[in-house]
Design a protein around this nucleic acid. Structure first.
Lengths: 344, 344
DNA sequence: TATCAACACGAAACCGTTTTCGTAACGTTT
DNA sequence: AAACGTTACGAAAACGGTTTCGTGTTGATA
């Protein structure tokens, strides 16, 4: 029943004005040492804590940032949130998390909800459906409300704001180059449909690497997985449809790589001796599968930190509106058993 | 520059009072049809949206619930958050996520931060350190602030509130019983230190199952993994220290099971023929490792939904304070290759 | 024609703070 | 003694809404 105690309560009880109490608690020297101590003691005793909502209204800032992610049960994204949370917390901000479930409608709804004054700024990784539709007006409306936006990982050129991305093209290149360096000839890539930029960019990197080494690109070795139907059988069917099994497979995410690994082993090939497998995102699957999968580490935590940092800079400094920045987080190759000969 | 437009702005522009505008926008029939439409049109045109903070202050509710979890990059917990988010959203609430990183101090800080009026209710899964210290006063202070609390998964008897838990003891029993049913004799359990209740309870279930079948409990088959040092080598060392390798291993989480699987295969044993492995939490590791690991599915999503639902009931109905409920979510055994003979 | 309800709107209080400004009381200076 | 500067506090506005309670105008009723 310990009804929350307010400034007014204290004021009444101590027979002073609320302004006096407020000042006393904020250590203003406008109030005499004596009274100040008395008020503080009283407030302390009754565990007074200023009402945040009132403060938010007064200060016109909420000390909260909103995050919209496509999915939360996902190693990469949860890493990002973790980074965001850490950075925000360190700068005394809280984080409100919304999930778009890859749906355009939900993303729009979330955006509207967040932009009604609940948060001081918004971080978004765009939903697949939105990317597919190419519909970004809901983001543009944010400008009207004057609320800073930072996009991360899944971004769009049509939206003018700060961004944090992975150097996907370079990573695709790096992965492919690595395979060629260890002597692989027939390198296959399991990618996404083109509207998912990350997949598309990695594929571009893949192609460049092939061309740079003077080889021809074989389009049959590029497979775009359709997320809307069963993934496993798609990959299985595709690989089986090739005249000859590839000697190296790049999966643009952990799952594709893990599935490719599984299918390959089931087919009787030895990994990495016959076939080498590499995936993007260094999650638990890569670490714990057998053989452990070589992965492009994407540093999700760092991405989250950077994105939050950029957003908070915007919020706090009110940077000159026309100088948007794009931070590129580079990946690292974490070599594991799936591409290296095991020590016998 | 589209300065956020307020009621006052509209009122001034249309030369009416703010009360009129407010009523018109809320479809009050106190305002004439004609004026109402005019105001609405105007508001619409300028994209008026009520300031949430002001509403929160006025209504004395924030429509936000806070969640404190030990870790976010974790399949089980992210599933829970997902469930919470879904339920909260469905009931027009938003979710503020805080991470305790298993630290008592951070948990306490988070709790203080959330209880200052930022949220209408709080969901917590207790940090390991807190459980270890047995220090729960920070939760009790919540009562003073009159803010509802629901604990999930990691709970404590000392805290008097609604709870949502997994039937850990029964699950431990079920897992062990299953192993005995498929003819395993030497069943080992990789558990946690006792202060982590979930691990302890599962171990109790394990013991009961053994006893119920008339066998003796062999304490050497119960290993408590210490999270503070390297897990892999601990498990490896432990298993190697046994006179004889077990023919079945229960891991109280996915990681322990995956490591046990790996170590077992490295040692040259066949899974499941020589050794069967089972883990708790049905995450990606279990699905994608080879062989895929049999798992106790914990329905994290459901736990999240239930917890949020319970909390919202408290918030909305102001249930009679002394009738706390504990919802038990039961687990399911998802049998996979790691315990079943493979089809050749 | 006086009375009264219904209608349509505005004034003001309220939510819980902070902050600007005003001022009474006192001490100091010339 | 007049003028002035401090000190220590309170009144009131402000943040952006909602809501209660008037109140001036109508039209209908007795």
């Amino acid at each position: 029943m310990g009804r929350k105690i307010t400034l007014k309560d204290i004021a009444k009880e101590l027979e002073v004005s609320t302004s006096t109490v407020s000042k006393a608690l904020n250590d203003s020297n406008e109030i005499s040492e004596e009274l100040r101590e008395k008020i503080k003691a009283f407030a302390d005793f009754y565990r007074y804590r200023p009402n945040m909502t009132a403060l938010k209204l007064r200060n016109k800032k909420t000390m909260v940032i909103g995050v919209i992610i496509p999915e939360i049960v996902h190693h990469f994204f949860s890493e990002i949130i973790s980074g965001i949370e850490k950075m925000a917390n360190g700068r005394s901000y809280n984080v409100m998390v919304c999930v778009s479930s890859e749906s355009y409608e939900k993303e729009k709804l979330n955006l509207e909800m967040l932009s009604n004054g609940s948060v001081d700024g918004i971080l978004v990784s765009i939903a697949k459906e939105t990317l597919e539709l190419g519909e970004f007006d809901h983001f543009k409306e944010l400008e009207d409300y004057n609320i800073p936006l930072v996009l991360f990982d899944r971004v769009s050129d049509e939206i003018y704001c700060d961004k944090v991305v992975v150097d996907d093209e370079a990573s695709g290149y790096k992965a492919t180059k690595y395979f060629m360096d260890i002597g692989r000839k027939k390198i296959c890539i399991l990618s996404t449909p083109d509207h998912v930029t990350v997949g598309a960019l990695r594929t571009i990197g893949y192609k460049k690497a092939i061309q740079d080494s003077g080889l021809e690109i074989d389009n049959r070795l590029i497979f775009k997985v359709n997320d809307k139907t069963e993934i496993y059988s798609q990959i299985q069917t595709y690989l089986n449809s090739l005249d000859e099994w590839p000697d190296a497979i790049v999966g643009v995410n952990e799952i594709y790589a893990a599935i490719a690994l599984k299918v390959t082993k089931e087919k009787g090939f030895k990994v990495p001796d016959d076939v080498a497998v590499l995936g993007f995102t260094d999650g638990l699957i890569s670490q714990f599968s057998t053989p452990a999968i070589t992965a492009m580490v994407q540093h999700g935590y760092l991405i989250g930190e950077q994105a939050a940092s950029l957003l908070l800079d915007r919020i706090q400094n009110k940077k000159d509106n026309e100088n948007f920045e794009t931070v590129v987080i580079s990946t690292d190759l974490k070599i594991r058993e799936s591409t290296e000969k095991k020590l016998e």
